[in-house]
Simulated assay, not measured.
Amino acid sequence: MMRVAARSVSEVEDIVTSPQLRVLVLIATHGPQTLGNVATELGVHASNATRTCEKLVRAGLIHRTEDPTDRRFVRVALTSTGAQLVERVIGHRRSALAEVLAEMDPDERSVAVASFRAFARAAGDLPDADGRFTLILPGTAGV
Rank of each mutant, 00 (worst) to 15 (best):
Ala123Asp: 05
Met104Ser: 02
Ala83Asn: 03
Val76Tyr: 14
Arg93Val: 05
Phe133Ser: 05
Asp128Cys: 10
Asp130Cys: 03
Leu85Phe: 00
Val111Thr: 10
Val111His: 06
Glu103Phe: 02
Val76Asp: 05
Arg109Asn: 04
Asp125Ser: 09
Ser80Asn: 05
Gly82Pro: 01
Ser110Asn: 14
Val111Leu: 11
Ala77Met: 05
Gly91Glu: 02
Ile136Arg: 10
Arg132Ala: 08
Leu101Val: 03
Phe133Cys: 03
Ala83Thr: 07
Val76Glu: 07
Asp130Arg: 13
Gly131Ser: 08
Ala96Asp: 07
Arg117His: 11
His92Ser: 15
Gln84Val: 08
Ile136Val: 14
Ala123Arg: 15
Leu137Arg: 04
Val100Glu: 08
Ala112Met: 12
Ala129Thr: 13
Phe133His: 08
Met104Ile: 00
Leu101Thr: 06
Ala123Gln: 13
Ala120Glu: 13
Leu78Ser: 05
Arg93Asp: 03
Ser115Lys: 12
Arg117Asn: 06
Ser115Gln: 09
Ala83Gln: 07
Ser110Phe: 09
Ala77Ser: 13
Ser115Arg: 14
Glu99Gln: 10
Ala96Met: 07
Leu135Ile: 15
Glu103Thr: 08
Ile136Trp: 09
His92Leu: 13
Arg117Met: 07
Ala120Phe: 09
Pro127Ala: 12
Val111Ser: 05
Ala96Ile: 03
Glu108Thr: 07
Val89Gln: 00
Leu137Lys: 04
Arg94Trp: 03
Gly82Lys: 02
Ala98Arg: 13
Arg117Lys: 15
Ala102Trp: 05
Ala120Pro: 00
Glu99Gly: 07
Val86Lys: 01
Met104Tyr: 08
Ala123Tyr: 01
Ala118Tyr: 05
Gln84Asn: 13
Ala112Trp: 08
Gly91Ile: 04
Glu108Val: 11
Ser115Met: 10
Ala98Thr: 05
Phe116Cys: 13
Gly124Ser: 03
Asp107Arg: 12
Ser115Pro: 00
Val113Tyr: 03
Ala83Phe: 05
Gly82Gln: 00
Gln84Met: 12
Pro127Met: 11
Ala98Glu: 06
Arg121Gly: 01
Ala120Asn: 09
Glu103Leu: 11
Ala102Pro: 00
Arg93Gln: 09
Arg117Phe: 02
Arg121Asn: 06
Arg121Phe: 06
Ile90Ser: 11
Ser95Asn: 08
Glu108Trp: 09
Ala120Met: 09
Pro106His: 03
Gly91Gln: 03
Ala129Met: 08
Arg94Asp: 10
Leu126Arg: 15
Leu135Gly: 04
Arg117Asp: 06
Ser110Cys: 09
Pro127Tyr: 11
Ile136Asn: 07
Ala120Leu: 12
Ala120Gly: 06
Asp105His: 06
Pro127Arg: 12
Ala118Cys: 07
Ile90Trp: 10
Arg132Ile: 01
Glu99Tyr: 07
Leu137Ala: 02
Glu108Leu: 14
Leu135Met: 04
Thr81Lys: 15
Ile90Lys: 11
Glu103Ile: 00
Ala122His: 12
Ala77Pro: 02
Arg88Gly: 11
Ala114Thr: 13
Thr79Val: 00
Val100Trp: 07
Asp125Trp: 14
His92Gly: 12
Ala123Met: 14
Arg93Lys: 11
Pro106Val: 04
Ala118Val: 09
Ala123Cys: 10
Glu103Cys: 08
Leu85Cys: 01
